[in-house]
Amino acid sequence: MTMPADQTQIEVPFTLNGSEIVVRVEPSERLLDTLRYHLAMTGTKEGCGEGECGACTVNMNGLPVNSCLVPTYQARGAEIETIESVQHGSVHPLHSTGATQCGACTPGVVMSAMWLLKNRDKLDTHTVRELMAGNLCRCTGYDGIVNGVESALGLGSDE
């Protein structure tokens, strides 16, 4: 028994990269798919669909979350920020240290890095490597990423 689609869909208002929007989605739809397939904002990537790789990282009310694990209805009223909100100038430190190779993990890495830049106090209790451990990268071996984050933070390299 399937109900007509428009009867099961729900309306979800939220703020996306500073603009207020409303989307109509199936109750089970993932925020990742809403962004990618409904809003054509394909910067956010899917790597695993189960909360392991971090490629789908977006900021929700100031916290990094795996958008593959967030049902879109949970974004009701939330402030969502995606890779599309990141200023080009701010990624230069990551560019120059070789933080991206294939680019599939990169939007998630950048979102985590941007969050860390705004939450430096986390470094009192955690290392950069710990704070970036939620983003799997199969290409760089992580030095390019760690060095880029440290240079953006104005720290030396991790020697």
Partner: peptide
């Protein structure tokens, strides 16, 4: 000399790169 930066690096770092799943 600093080596040249990756040509498509900025596009990848800003999520602009279009992989096959991203193609409309």
């Amino acid at each position: 000399d600093q080596p040249p930066l990756r040509t498509e690096g900025l596009s990848k770092l800003t999520g602009a790169e279009r992989f096959v799943d991203d193609l409309a």
